[in-house]
């Protein structure tokens, strides 16, 4: 693994001019993203904005119609090994014979062929990472019987065992209650900073991430904007991105993106469209 601190100026992930087209529909348009080691990036967008497509491109599961993806430094060849992926949710029946420990161990060598050989080193690394994500308590319980937050921690541990330079989390907060969501965010941000791993967290609401995000990628209608929070969440910038007038409101430290200026309502607020950022347009 290359020393992340030495190459501070080299991005660990670089997307240049990415466009993706399905049939005639343009799902991503000229997306440029650069992620540096140790950064916490929030990938924010509503349903249908192109988040999952972008994620597939980053993971290398979908080759873009146009543009280039570079993972790791120019020297690193195998992109997928440098990326730890945490899926949105596990679909496992409660009686599936798999303990948390077994799931995490798959992060170490799940891609290798053949049966695993017993090794103390393997066992030690699994226990170590379970401690690190604070999941040792329920590591021996069947995965299917754990709560969403507990499963999420195991999945994060699983992804960390690949020694990734980038940790990619697909909507980890959407199935969690407020407290578990907060805990997961704190955990990921702590581990990212400690180990110098770049974290990319996909979400439809930016507010839970405001304290920990270094930069944000905002996706709307296949177009992406990347930058510091105050630079991105501005009425003129986002109106430009959407191609439709939107307003960014700051309510008690929380950011809301609200659609439309109330022309047709004679200046009265239009409650119907003023809601969470993911409901815009």
């Amino acid at each position: 693994m290359m020393d992340w601190a030495a190459g501070k100026d080299d991005p660990v992930l670089a997307l240049d001019n990415i466009s993706v087209q399905f049939d005639k529909r343009c799902v991503l348009k000229n997306v440029n993203i650069r992620v540096y080691p140790g950064e916490f990036i929030g990938l924010i967008g509503s349903n249908g904005a192109g988040k999952s497509t972008l994620l597939k491109v980053i993971l290398g599961l979908l080759s873009p119609t146009q543009g280039t993806v570079q993972v790791g430094g120019p020297a690193d060849g195998k992109g997928e090994r440098l990326m730890g992926y945490v899926p949105q949710k596990l679909f496992l029946a409660p009686d599936i014979p798999l303990r948390g420990r077994d799931l995490v161990a798959l992060g170490l060598d799940g891609h290798r062929w053949g049966i695993p050989l017993f090794s103390k080193e393997r066992k030690r690394r699994v226990s170590e990472i379970l401690e690190a994500v604070d999941a040792a308590r329920y590591a021996d319980a069947p995965v299917g019987q754990l709560s969403g937050g507990e499963q999420q921690r195991l999945l994060i541990a699983q992804a960390l065992l690949t020694d990734p330079q980038i940790l990619l989390l697909d909507e980890p907060l959407s199935n969690l209650d407020i407290k578990s969501a907060y805990e997961v965010i704190q955990l990921v941000s702590r581990i990212g900073r400690e180990k110098g791993i770049a974290v990319i967290l996909v979400a439809h609401d930016m507010n839970p991430l405001l304290g920990v995000m270094d930069r944000v990628v905002y996706l709307a209608d296949g177009k992406a904007l990347m930058g510091q929070i105050p630079d991105v969440f501005r009425s003129d910038v986002l109106s430009d991105l959407y191609g439709y007038p939107v307003e960014v409101l700051n309510v008690q430290g929380r950011i809301m993106v609200v659609g439309g200026r109330n022309f047709e309502n004679n200046g009265y607020p239009r409650e119907a469209i003023c809601c969470e950022s993911n409901e815009v347009l």
Binding site: K78, E80, Y85, I115
Partner: peptide
């Protein structure tokens, strides 16, 4: 031969795909 990849693919198709 298939043991580990098959197990991983059974647990989560997405993780398995992301690991190549």
């Amino acid at each position: 031969f298939l043991y580990r990849p098959l197990l991983l693919a059974s647990v989560s198709k997405e993780i398995a795909q992301s690991r190549g």
